[in-house]
């Protein structure tokens, strides 16, 4: 299974782990956008999740509590965003950017004194003999529980949006808040719920960075993962399965370019560094060309809702 000196099995196993943070954040953001709200503050929520998750996990010695702490911090940040955009009807783009700025600053304040500590280990799920199956074992059955949780969430969100009444209402709110309001749905309450969920997901994704991927706390640890998550949502045309594909594609290319270097490839490094972004753009163009309106974007995405009656 070697191609150009790169082992495919380990590459796949690595990219599945590497893409968990952006997958979690992107799934959450997708639900938020489905409800018609655009929250550009994913990076800020992720990094608050990263620092809080780290502090909680180290203090309690329990990584599970750490992830919950991360989710709570992300949701708290999202609550701030909901207050601004849903109650005070502020512009969503500007509020999201402010959230990121605030989160980067606050996380760095909170994290002072937490540098250079090793967090408790999040172990692999013991799947016994499954992990020993050649090829499939290392790729699918030797990961930590967050990997599996993120995959389960892909299915759960897909099912929720497609097959449940609550999911239908959520989508209706995103498509036309006026119509949904006329039908008697609480537009703001539903959107606030979605925003909080999105924040919790981003916070957990951030906690995965500081507890598993890197594992440590340093300022700016998420280094732009939140922006990539936002990109993936659009890339995926607001479909859960495509979010998964997008996260894997992006994670895969990022990992692959380093693997290519390590394997002594002759492609210049600067082009390899650009490649994940350029390939994402190209795929995006391919997906969007020759299609109807806006590739499945919720019609009322980013619009402020005010019930005038």
């Amino acid at each position: 299974m070697d191609i150009g000196g790169i082992n495919l099995v380990t590459l796949l196993a690595t990219l599945i782990v590497a893409s968990v943070p952006i997958l979690m954040a992107a799934l959450g953001e997708m639900v938020v956008e489905k409800s018609g709200t655009l929250n550009l503050g994913v990076e800020g929520m992720m990094i608050m999740g990263a620092v809080t998750g780290f502090v909680v996990a180290v203090t309690t010695g329990n990584p599970v509590l750490g992830f919950l702490g991360g989710a709570a911090a992300g949701a708290a940040m999202a609550g701030l965003f909901a207050l601004l955009t849903q109650v005070l009807l502020a512009n969503q783009v500007a509020s999201g950017l402010a959230l990121t700025l605030f989160g980067l600053g606050l996380s760095s304040l909170m994290g002072q004194g937490w540098n250079g500590i090793r967090p408790p280990l999040t172990g692999d799920v013991p799947l016994g003999p499954l992990a020993d199956i050649p090829v499939l074992g290392p790729i699918l059955f030797s990961h930590d529980w967050m990997v599996y949780l993120s995959l389960i969430l892909v299915v759960a969100i897909w099912w929720f949006l497609r097959a449940t009444r609550a999911g239908l209402i959520l989508r209706a709110v995103g498509e036309s808040h006026e119509a949904a309001h006329a039908l008697g749905y609480k537009v703001r309450r539903i959107r606030t719920g979605a925003i909080l969920f999105g924040g919790a997901m981003a916070g957990m994704g951030g906690a995965y960075v500081s507890l598993v991927r890197v594992p440590q706390w340093t300022d700016g640890i998420t280094s732009g993962a939140g922006w990539i998550a936002l990109a993936i949502v659009v890339f995926a045309s607001w479909k859960p399965w495509r979010v998964l594909m997008g996260a894997w594609l992006f994670g895969g290319i990022s990992v692959l370019q380093l693997n290519l270097q390590a394997a002594g490839s002759r492609i210049p490094v600067e082009y390899l560094t650009m490649s994940p972004y350029i390939i994402t753009i190209l795929v995006l163009v391919l997906i969007s060309s020759g299609r109807g309106r806006a590739m499945g974007a919720p019609a009322d995405l980013g619009k402020t809702f005010h019930a005038s009656h």
Partner: peptide, 22 residues
């Protein structure tokens, strides 16, 4: 004052500006 506090302070300024815009 730590640099991070200034960043958080700028974030607050934006929040309040957006909030009172209503």
């Amino acid at each position: 004052v730590p640099a991070a506090a200034i960043q958080a302070f700028q974030g607050m300024l934006l929040f309040f500006l957006l909030a009172v815009d209503i």
